[in-house]
């Protein structure tokens, strides 16, 4: 089947999509956007988190056909002229090791800070509880979100 939707502000189309394909597969293998990651494909790790009509979801659990006509933002859409505050904070705080969880965490953290610009540590932990990281022990991810919140606060 053919699927058409908006990704990072641009309309994209994919043909010959098998009906069982996920949004994640279409993004990665058909639209040249492999930033969203295929770590578990069962909604248990958050590495494929994208915004679907503004809401963070696991792209692996959205059937490709369900994305028809909708608006998707992936990690590739986070940066503007430079890195976004959250992206820069992840680099600066040492929150990136292997980096496979990073794209999903960035989309989730971006949403978290949008909902709650000055989250407590418990809020950060709850907000990111759907994103597994195997490398960092999460401490530097917490540092990064705190740093991004502080920088966004200064910039506001």
């Amino acid at each position: 089947m053919r699927v058409t939707f908006t990704v990072n502000g641009r309309e994209q189309q994919a043909d010959d999509v098998w009906e069982g394909e996920s949004l994640l597969y279409v993004l990665r293998e058909r639209m040249g956007l492999p930033g969203s990651k295929n770590a578990c494909e069962q909604g248990e790790c958050g590495s494929c988190t994208v915004r679907l009509d503004g809401v963070p979801v696991c792209a692996c659990l959205v059937a490709a056909g369900q994305a028809e006509g909708r608006d998707v933002v992936t990690v590739e859409g986070l940066a503007g002229d430079g890195l976004s505050a959250v992206q820069q904070a992840f680099v600066d705080a040492g929150a990136v090791q292997c980096g496979f969880c990073t794209p999903g965490l960035l989309v989730a953290a971006d949403d978290l800070l949008e909902q709650n610009p000055s989250p407590s540590d418990a809020d950060i932990r709850e907000g990111l509880s759907g994103n597994l990281c195997r490398c960092t022990g999460y401490e530097k991810i917490l540092d990064a979100v705190r740093l991004a919140a502080a920088r966004r606060g200064e910039g506001a």
């Binding site: 009906e19 069982g20 996920s22 494909e41 069962q42 909604g43 696991c58 692996c60 659990l61 959205v62 059937a63 056909g65 369900q66």
Partner: peptide, 26 residues
């Protein structure tokens, strides 16, 4: 039927199920 996909897509991704039709309720 598929809505949130949070059960069904796991079954499809892991090749546990191949429904003849998916009925999108979104």
């Amino acid at each position: 039927p598929i809505a949130g996909g949070t059960d069904l897509m796991v079954e499809i991704n892991f090749d546990h199920r191949r429904p003849e039709y998916l009925l999108d309720l979104n």
